[in-house]
Amino acid sequence: MRARGALLELALFVAAALLFALGFGLPEFTPPAFELGPRAPGDVRVMTWNVGGSGSGDEWGGPLRDEHVAHVAEVLRELDPDLCFLQEVRMGLQAEHLLTALGPGWQMEVSGSTGNRRLVAFAQRGSLRSLDFDDRSRRALTVRYEPNGGAPITAVGLHADAASAQRRNEDIGALATALVDRAGDTILLGDFNFDLDLGKRRDLFTDDEYLDVETYNFIATRFLDATLGTGSTAEPDRRLDYIFVRQPAFEVRTAGPIKNRRFGDMDHDPVLADLTR
């Protein structure tokens, strides 16, 4: 009888070991990494990039450094977006220097300033002009981009408040509502400054997560999150940059963050989407 008990005990240990091996051995699910492919004719490529740095001594990081302007222009030429929003461009002539570095064929619109930085929209292969829209506290820039031979697009680039979930909710919610009310093809993109990673819920160092969920859901019920499931866009392992497109105006052919394009102390990746109409 004792031997039977010992045998049962051994069987339990062996079964536990096998199950642990199975449980820890099965591969973790990881979404396939985003790879930028060739763009299809007729696609519109949109992009957002917070080009600010993380370590200039400023509490919320610093704006784009002048010595990084040439690198940013090089990345823009390489990724070749039709419409691109940059956040954290320094006040003064930095935007103009960027336009010069980009070369002929590019157009530019700039937002008002928040502190010593501003939003800038660049476009090529079409016409670009800013719109008098609800540009919440100068944290947003609204433009109308009309690609050559295509229907116009209304796009709002945003750099949401990094410090307050309440202000993020008000700014993003108002912009999303205004965009929904607007007829035509609309896009909302930029640095939204929230991360909804399931694994990071109840982080000891933030109590904003559940509040930002409300804001994200508000947008996601009205727009398509083009880069969902494509991974982090900013350090440390956070998804802060988004491209939301209105459906059915657009189908997303491919979208995601482009890795290995940061320079110096930059802490965001460019995020890009190829949209079919």
Binding site: E9, L12, F13, A16, L18, L19, G23, F24, L26, F29
Partner: peptide, 29 residues
Amino acid sequence: VNWTTFFRDAAKLSGFSLLFLALALHRFR
């Protein structure tokens, strides 16, 4: 449903359960 994730966690939980039972049985015996 991601069945790999589902069965991976089920296997881990079953492993924990049987390990606890084996230790408990050893002590009880």
